[in-house]
Design a protein around this nucleic acid. Sequence first.
RNA 1: GGCUCCAUAGCUCAACAGGAUAGAGCAACGGUUUUCUAAACCGUAGGUUCCAGGUUCGAACCCUGGUGGAGUCACCA
Length: 606
Amino acid sequence: MKDITKEIEIAAAEAVKAIYQADIPTGDFLVTSTKKEHKGDYTLVTFAISKALRQPPPQIAAAIGEYIQRTRSWVSGTEVLQGFLNISLSTAYWNEVLVDMQGNPDFWKPSQPREKVLVEFSSPNTNKPLHLGHIRNILLGWSMSKIFLACGHEVNKVQIVNDRGIAICKSMLAWQKFGEGITPEKAGIKSDHFVGEWYVRFEKEFSAEYKLWQETDDAKAHYSKRKETEQSEQDFFKAYKNVYFNTYSDLGKEARELLLKWEYHDHDTIALWKKMNGWVYAGFEDTYKSLGVSFDKLYYESETYLLGKDLIEDGLKRGVFYKKDDGSVWVDLTDAGLDHKLLLRSDGTSVYMTQDLGTAQKRYDEFGAERMVYVVADEQNYHFQALFAIMAKLGAPYAPGLHHLSYGMVDLPEGKMKSREGTVVDADDLMADVVEEARVAAKDREMTDPEIIRRIGMAALKFFIIKVDPRKRMTFDPKASVDLQGQTGPYIQNAYVRVQSILRRAGEVSGSYEGYELNEDEKLLLNMLGQCRHIVDSAAREYSPALIANYAFTLAKEYHRYYHEVKVLQAETEQAKFFRLILIKLIGDILAQSMDLLGIEMPERM
RNA sequence: GGCUCCAUAGCUCAACAGGAUAGAGCAACGGUUUUCUAAACCGUAGGUUCCAGGUUCGAACCCUGGUGGAGUCACCA
């Protein structure tokens, strides 16, 4: 299909050469779509080239305009406003665009050189159910995967499950001590929530124990000896909690012993660990299913946490890393503007970074990933900078293809989500709420189909989250997220449903739109459809599904307006009717395709 | 404290590479339905783009300095 922006650039370069005998590369021309309030479809901005040509912008614009109108059949008119050359395109051009789109169902897909792309997202801990923060993560990861796929890449969706460590041991211990063999089935609780409750139980018991200890003379002695100046007793004990856990706490000791047993592969401990993690996985599976996402491969931290040591050895041998006297291994990243980073503890055990190095290598070996995208919240920006810098130092072939899709945390209107204050929004509860809200709204409209209601509710939730630029921190207002009107998922669904409704009534149609003069709205809509591939292309390059969300909304908005402007089935002429049926079919398709890229499903009626 | 990111209408968000008069939605107010489904459309009102300088034909965007907020700076993950 013709890339009209490119065509205009070429024509302008040609004009400049013919008129001013000057060579200006096509890339130096700035072509944008014309602002709505002005006449025209595309605009050439001439300020930037004015210096090179030593002519005032309006004169250049006029000269180029005259030239391209004379030499290009697809130009129907031009208009100069200051340094802006507004170009109107001919009916023949628009007809050609329509024919091209009709003949090629993939016209909206950008073409990028095929790559093997790995996208890591979700990556939960196994001691708690998924929450609102995970939802943003998952929607971003899922959507990026779909976008890469649409760009022609080979995509592998993976998550790394943090299934080991002290956290799950806390849940295990609490269940062991107080659970009396109860199971999720017996308790009638979704299994991942069940495990989460034992984690909470542990924290509760531990806090009680800590509180008691604070009353002892031993504790008071610590406070008076180690408090910093002006630190209140309360602040001191808050800050001291971890130290207490690791040195004095009985529960802490038991939990650490459990972790140790796990590391020594103690039979009973492993069995318990498997049982509780199994519960969690079953619960996660449900949540993923509700969200409509899936993974190609799961990595478990219990299987990867020892990886990476050989890379460290190799790096040491090659002098990329260095060893301190105590035996710990470090890397100097000051030349990358970072710090010195620990890679192996003095006792030879690995840290998070070691594991990540090893996992990346493993993925490269297994999948040949040329690009690896990590969807991880922005609190880990520094970690990924360091990780990538180390990869580059090691000269890993995949180092240039590493990318951290860093997204901002999700806040509530009242502020940060805090597990301690119980303000964390649970993923399952949230989905149930939005679907329930959709059900209530559907009642007035005499609509009861549960699948349609589910799609509407989920669209509201997903769109509310994915429309925001990933890099920015966002505020999640539960009330606003269930809105079904305005800038929402259901608004876009409604536009699609309106298209389907007309198409259903129209039935099988044949005819011709030969000679039909399309109006300004139709040109705008057609042009917007043509933009889709650029939007998808940008979304992939900028790692931002939000671009597609905003595009889909704008398209839906234009369509809703158009819907009120013109009649399709009772159009003035047969040509008009035929043309419009084709146009709205394409609009419906693109709305559905772009929403699909966001992981949002369309209902056929609503 | 060092480094990084953010600040746009009352609220939630846009603004393509530095381009024309900074746009949507929500909330408020007023209108549109014998209709291809009103989860829609049209209109009114709402702005010192945090502040002060600078760069240029042109700045929400780039530079400098400030203010406010967030994150991070572990032999945690």
